[in-house]
Design a protein around this nucleic acid. Structure first.
Lengths: 334, 334
DNA sequence: GTCTCTAATTCTCATCTCGAGTATAAGGAA
DNA sequence: TTCCTTATACTCGAGATGAGAATTAGAGAC
């Protein structure tokens, strides 16, 4: 543990001077897979980290600062950007531990359309399911979930107070759908935090956190520097939630695309397989796309129409999005 | 364009030292009206402000700091708390302008159940519609909206570039439902920001913002210190959105309540009138409440059953909330 | 040219959900 | 007992949704 200073009576103790770190989760979908832009953290064991940098006086707005940092670090120009959350606990493990000041991290979700190949620009586009293997249900229930279940259950059972135990069990049931058996793809962050608390992810062991480890770490996903994996979880959760009521997917699509490409993009993000005819009906009923007139050949079958996003849709519908539903909703009590 | 600095090698100019302000929107519903806890800002013209205070080294987490400040400033102990957004533009007008450092404000939405009467504790519970009179549609379309419409339209028409004009008109259509005629109660923030940009709220004139003023300021709601009204707008928007898929309303209810009380609470927050039988059906179908066995007399009619929140509901449904719908949804193109 | 394969697109149908309205129940007061 | 008020229950039709079957249109094999 670090010496946690308690000087509460120094002159200007009324306010603490902190430095602010702007951190970007840069998302794209290529080849039907969701990708995050990562860099290699300098020191130590070369963990993956997210593009990030300190807020400086020249940044007029936070978002401006974020864009600047991502550009200088990766060469990537951002499209859509949305603030996610501000992390500010005093004892967070940080990738760039400079001094003993408190560091606030402001996380952003950003989307880019055509991720340039990272020729010689630094940065790697990685499939985000490398970091969260249990989140990809496109080919059915992921195998690693089975491996997580037992340690999680044992962690819950190992709580001291019975009330604690119940609380943990409830969180597990809610997040992973153990018991009820229903998976809610939006709860990415809750699941990561449970895995963390249970000591199942590598990050939890870096600074003497929980010690419950005994689970196959290989199955708990690739680690990231600092708490970047938590920020990534926050971003995925937000994006999965948001595509349902806001047309954000289109920020990831090329100007013209087929309905199948759109579906596959949504599937990639949500980590779910969808029913093709129903997906089409949804998109068309909502008026989210319009014809370009062109078609694609070379699909291997009947040519597909190329469509584009129809901007007027946001004016017509109150929640223009793709409300995908994982499975049949839980039926109410009989 | 701003000079985008590339000097990545100066000593410590790379990071700016900022102070952080924790700001709370404390919400309760009493007497069927939504309330915010406000204080009087010290200096100047005694504007209403939200409870807030700087982050200090003793605060281990941001939320902890927030709770501490609200308690010391108002005596109010918080229940539910949720981070909203971090405001950090360099040129924000702030209620407590200390020095020239950048100040980051982290806004929180917090809910309290039984707001203690503020006997001699500082702080006033104010109907939040005093700050946003156009947001209350419980008795039909609010009158002040008619007064806003014209100035807003003129502001849009007054844009320099035609593309700008179109963009403004689109935002107006989307936020206020002019034209389409459909009101979306969630877009509180967008509406406030439009009113601000159009110079229709007092805050816009405090520091030489836009100068479009000519609208009846009396109808544009009570002003607040700094950008607290924007933070309040953010909170209302978040809360209105969230009751639809998360059982947060119950954080505002007493332990036992009638279905009508619950409905009136939702109506107060959403600023809408709901269909009684359908609201009951919704609540009961979702299994959100259970009987307490007791009934209330003195309702003026048939006694009402007292129910309580049923915690298991969150385990059964993937989005346990009260998806209230303002009106018939927009029909698709013919 | 015809057949076959693949993927795009269209239809069907039963089941839910939801908005809206109507009917009945149970206290209190006149 | 009657009326008034509010709580609670029932009904109906339109639209949304989940699931699957049927049809269409290129490409390549023969």
């Amino acid at each position: 543990m670090e010496a946690r200073k308690k000087r509460r009576s120094t002159a200007d103790r009324s306010s603490e001077s902190v430095t602010v770190d702007l951190t970007a989760v840069v998302v794209a979908v290529t080849g039907g897979e969701p990708r995050v832009l990562t860099l290699s953290s300098a020191g130590e064991e070369a963990l993956d980290r997210l593009p990030s940098g300190p807020l400086t006086p020249e940044h007029r707005t936070l978002e401006q600062g974020l864009r600047a940092w991502v550009e200088t670090q990766t060469g990537q120009v951002l499209g859509y950007a949305e603030q996610l959350y501000t992390f500010g606990d005093r004892d967070r493990r940080l990738p760039t531990a400079k001094g003993s000041d408190r560091i606030l991290s402001i996380g952003y979700l950003t989307l880019v359309r055509g991720p340039r190949k990272t020729d010689r620009a630094p940065g790697v586009w990685q499939d985000w399911y490398r970091f969260f293997p249990w989140e990809d249900w496109r080919d059915g229930r992921p195998a690693c979930l089975a491996a997580l279940r037992d340690p999680l259950m044992r962690w819950a059972a190992g709580a001291n107070a019975p009330s604690d135990r119940r609380a943990r069990e409830e969180r597990l049931a809610l997040s992973f759908g153990f018991a009820s058996g229903s998976w809610n793809e939006d709860r990415v962050l809750e699941r990561y935090e449970l895995a963390y608390e249970a000591g199942l992810v590598a990050e939890a062991h870096r600074e003497g956190g929980s010690t419950f480890l005994d689970a196959p770490l290989a199955q708990t996903g690739r680690a990231m520097a600092g708490d970047h994996r938590r920020i990534l979880a926050t971003a995925i959760a937000r994006l999965r939630g948001k595509i349902k009521y806001r047309p954000v997917v289109f920020e990831l699509m090329p100007p013209a695309f087929t309905l199948l490409q759109l579906q596959q993009t949504v599937e990639a993000l949500a980590g779910l397989r969808l029913h093709k005819p129903n997906f089409r009906r949804l998109v068309e009923q909502q008026g989210l796309v319009e014809e370009t007139g062109a078609v694609t050949l070379g699909t291997g079958g009947r040519p597909a129409r190329l469509v584009r996003f129809r901007r007027e849709a946001v004016l017509e519908r109150s929640a223009p999005g793709l409300r995908v539903r994982a499975a049949r909703r839980a039926r109410r009590a009989p």
